[in-house]
Design a protein around this nucleic acid. Structure first.
Lengths: 405, 405
DNA sequence: TGACTTTTGATTGACAGCCGACAGAAGTGC
DNA sequence: GCACTTCTGTCGGCTGTCAATCAAAAGTCA
């Protein structure tokens, strides 16, 4: 949490480490329990330094709000065995929506981002915000009913959309593949079904958050790279998702690859990563070589069949992604890079190409502890991230204090 | 501060915006006054919502600690004229040290990063940490005497060094041009003179912080790019300086330029930005064309003399820096890029080359509000940043509470 | 079974933080 | 000069928090 620490002189007043600032409140105590580990009241007094009576009162509050629940008793150490308490992910639910270009995945999760109900549906984003969001609302209501929850049980709604978003307002900003959505008030429209906080972000940012929350919770600096129809990334630096000034951060797709390539790109420039290493670009390269791969699903089938030429092509695309990621590694010095998106399902050759290029082109200090891995959350990254978007802030100290108050 | 805001539903409980969390304390109140604007007690009650009596008590505390000072009276609006108070930058001093490869700049500043005394000195970093830091300590003691301050008056010491630093411990990490400094405990050694908090960071990070604090205080996303013997950058994202996992973030120098260049680099790779656009690289290119430029100081003189060939070379180097920065813009979406380092003094042609490449290769959404400017703080960026490093955390809510308590 | 240990809940008193009320200070306007 | 307005400092009371104490609960060990 405290990304920052300070060198104290030995015997004098020093700056307070940021992490020590624990105003005693139910919300602050809750943060200690949020990892899911059952703890006793004694554990909590030891961790906080507060009186047992104070801790007892706070625990009571959290139990009343059912944000924590009894988690059995520890074995006795010679006296009365202490009862333990743990985070109760069932206290509230979260509605998580992941909108792609042609389909939507909608899930109801608990507060630990565990999926309670889920539906994937063909849904063309070009139908416009009203039609798409109305469809999403209807499906979400069904899912809620399925899980026996009501819209009021929701801690919030998280939405990932395939384009840049002004995070503060939840409005898409000049999204290239979402005609009719520019500046549309997504939270305002969804509010008719869900009278709860609604947070919207870019879909790749959501995926980064999902993978981070579920698979790499302690990692402060990571990137999630999605390679599919387009190529984008979500950046977590210093433990926080980075949006940039206009919500456009993470756009890897139109970075020029280092080898002087001149393949024209849809953006008008030449040599963009997306023009040579995206799913459609790989498929196009294979078509040039005589393969019958009308779309990138067919391309993936071909690769998985083990065709040598296809493997070589995919590996080369991996190298090109890696050559751009090498620059990102030098610039951001992450400790984990997660590769996702459909192309990441092409197998080890793609990842191997990426690793090869990154490790040959990045500086040793930046790569010595770097892990480049494939997504664990796969197609679910988006909804898990949408869920994390909500819990990440809905379960903050302030908001938990509000929930118990 | 609150980089983050949340969409509330209209008539229901919502997440508390992070910025609203103002536990009333002298430290919190101080943050409102820190911009230097004189304010009345009424202003502060209106801003915080607390009772006048409470504000009066806090103001009293801050006055006693001389962290704020009376700033005259506003004109009457029909009754007794209100007295105003403002941040008092003279309350404490800061020792700021900027170590380069061959010289050191040492300054004593006030809490608003205004230089009270300053000295620049030839000092070869390769002499090793003990010799260098002993020299720094001696000069710093002189400067303190000059300003009539004692080491105990210091809020802290900030140090910038030309290499990666593990920020939490203040130790250089495998620095390429600092033989003998690897893992050296810089704060531990400086503590013998200065029994105060000591913070160490990379010099370019310090420059970024300095330019940010002095020239662009409200900007949440910016980069500071130093082009000199090497090429590096400091990244401020979401209002915070980014260090990356090993303190190696911001290393632009060894990112491959997009045009397929194969100039060999000292790092062992080819086509690194530093190999084609750094001061020595530009000088080498001019030597190849028959100019007598033994080092990059001579190169800069040549450029300033207006030689057309030299201007063309510098402009081309600017384009190459810009081609890499274009990728950074897509990745980080900053709103300001500041160009510093000696090469930035070569004149408008260098900057023009950068702008040309960035605007032609970055996406419109990311560049529409992007400013690319030359440093305002010039050679002082490093010490100003070292000062900001100290005040940025020594004047936090917690530490001000400690100072008044 | 009984002595001992540990946890838990309830009670109590001390204390700090904050507020509202009040009176005095220092101006303006007639 | 006087009424009025606005600002300022002080005081008492309210509230919420904390730490210490005590008794009861629930186990272990001999």
């Amino acid at each position: 949490m405290a990304s920052f620490s300070v060198i104290d002189e030995q015997n004098s007043v020093a700056f307070a480490p940021a992490g020590n600032t624990l105003p005693n409140s139910a919300g602050a105590l809750f943060q200690l329990l949020r990892d899911g580990t059952p703890r006793t009241r004694s554990d909590l007094t030891a961790m906080t330094g507060f009186a047992r009576s104070t801790i007892s009162a706070r625990v009571e509050e959290l139990l009343d709000a059912s944000l924590i629940r009894p988690a059995g008793e520890n074995s006795s150490t010679g006296g009365r065995p202490p009862s333990t308490f743990a985070f109760n992910p069932d206290a509230r639910s979260v509605l998580a929506v992941d909108l792609g270009g042609t389909h939507a995945r909608i899930a109801v999760t608990d507060l630990a981002a565990r999926v309670l109900a889920e539906k994937e549906q063909e849904l063309d984003i070009t139908r416009g915000p009203v039609a798409v969001l109305d469809a999403v609302g209807a499906i979400a209501m069904e899912l809620l009913q399925e899980t026996g929850r009501s819209p009021e049980d929701l801690l919030g709604v998280g939405v990932g959309v395939p384009g840049p978003v002004e995070f503060a307002t939840g409005r898409p900003m000049s999204p290239p593949i979402m005609p009719g959505w520019d500046h549309f008030d997504i939270p305002g429209h969804l509010r008719q079904w869900f009278p709860v906080p609604i947070m919207v972000d870019n879909d790749v940012n959501a995926m980064a958050l999902g993978e981070h929350a579920v698979t790499y919770p302690g990692v402060a600096n990571m990137m999630f790279v999605k390679v599919a129809t387009g190529i984008g990334s979500g950046i977590i630096s210093d433990g926080r998702l980075q949006h940039g000034a206009q919500g456009a951060a993470g756009d890897l797709g139109h970075i020029a690859i280092p080898d002087g390539d001149t393949t024209p790109c849809t953006c008008g420039n030449a040599g963009c990563l997306e023009a040579v290493a995206s799913g459609p670009a790989i498929a196009a390269q294979l078509r040039e070589r005589g393969f019958d791969v009308p779309h990138h699903a067919a391309m993936l089938d071909l690769v998985r069949s083990g065709d040598v030429e296809a493997l070589r092509t995919v590996r080369q695309a991996g190298r090109q992604v890696g050559s751009v990621l090498a620059g990102c590694v030098n610039l951001l010095n992450p400790s984990v890079i997660v590769i996702g998106g459909v192309v990441s399902t092409a197998g080890e050759h793609f990842l191997a190409g990426i690793r090869e290029a990154v490790y040959s082109r990045s500086l040793p200090l930046a790569t010595q502890h770097l892990r480049i891995v494939v997504t664990q959350t796969r197609a679910r990254a988006g909804v898990l991230g949408a869920s994390a978007l909500v819990t990440g802030h809905g379960l903050s100290v302030e908001n938990v204090n509000r929930l118990v108050g």
